[in-house]
């Protein structure tokens, strides 16, 4: 697995997609940090980009990557190496490559413009750590889709639907429910809803550390009370990790049972 990881990782670092992804994010975050009036505004703008684009890119490229490895898989399956180490190695390599691209694309401008998140280390940790986890989550989902759906076209559309659902559809549903049940106290249900969607969770976690947290009023206060505690931090980390582990386990299960 280690060898597969090394091989795939170095191979990926030279791929045009990763370079383009890195370049795009670098240019974007450079621009944002250069022109934002404050660190808080910069992180707000960057957050919007990350929660929209990182899931999309990971989902699409992850699916594509797995489909394109078909020949490689068939070749390797003839060798004395299990399916699980092979594909897990690929997954880790892809995660590491995209994660590294993201890390550098965000980190270089921060270092260049001296934005240490306004001295807020927690904001930095939540933003970068959460961003990385988002990459892993959507890559895991992408692999799961690719291994379950044989037809590439259907695979891609499934991936897109997953992205649309988590980024737009889920929030629409939450909004609808909030409107429907507006007569009831909704702080806790909304909080739970935010915990269940990794994109929302990352958004809320970062938002809590920005100036705009004050705009959230009463809802924000109850959020702050939860995310401010040690328990809240562990629960949200757990929720994000569950979103990696669950699809990965499913993926491995499907992988071992798949009839190539």
């Amino acid at each position: 697995m280690g060898q597969i990881f090394r091989y795939c990782f170095w191979d990926l670092l030279r791929s045009r997609f990763i370079l383009a992804y890195f370049g795009f994010f670098l240019a974007g975050s450079m621009g944002i940090f250069r022109f934002s009036p404050s660190a808080s505004a910069a992180f707000g703008a960057l957050l919007s980009a990350v929660i929209l684009l990182a899931p999309l890119c990971c989902q699409i490229y992850g699916t594509l990557y797995f489909y394109q490895s078909r020949g490689f898989h068939e070749l390797m399956f003839a060798q004395p190496i299990g399916r699980i180490p092979l594909c897990l190695g690929q997954f880790l390599a892809l995660s590491a490559a995209l994660g590294l691209a993201f890390l550098m694309a965000v980190g270089i401008p921060m270092a260049a413009y001296g934005f240490s998140a306004g001295g807020d280390v927690r904001l930095l940790m939540v933003f970068v750590g959460g961003g990385l986890l988002l990459h892993f989550i959507f890559l895991a989902l992408a692999f799961l889709v690719a291994v379950s759906v044989e037809d590439r076209l259907r695979g891609f559309s499934t991936s897109l639907v997953i992205w649309l659902t988590l980024v737009f559809g889920y929030d629409a549903l939450v909004m609808a429910l909030v409107m429907k049940f507006s007569d009831y106290p909704l702080e806790t249900p909304v909080l739970a809803a935010m915990l269940l969607n990794p994109v929302d969770l990352e958004r809320v976690l970062v938002l809590m550390h920005l100036d705009s947290a004050a705009l959230l009023g009463y809802t924000g206060a109850s959020f702050q009370k939860f995310f401010g505690t040690v328990l809240g931090t562990w629960v949200s980390l757990g929720a994000l990790l569950m979103w990696i582990i669950a699809p990965l386990l499913l993926f491995l299960r499907k992988l071992t049972r798949k009839d190539w």
Binding site: G44, L47, S48, I51, L52, V167, F168, D171, A172, V174, M175, V178, M179, S182, L186, E187, V190, L191, A193, M194, D200, R203, V204, L207, S212, L215, L216, G217, Y218, T219, G220, F223
Partner: peptide, 20 residues
Amino acid sequence: SLMDHYPEALALMRSHFLTL
């Protein structure tokens, strides 16, 4: 206006659904 009517919807602030 949404947030005036439904303050809990503020949790969706900066989400892309609301931008849309």
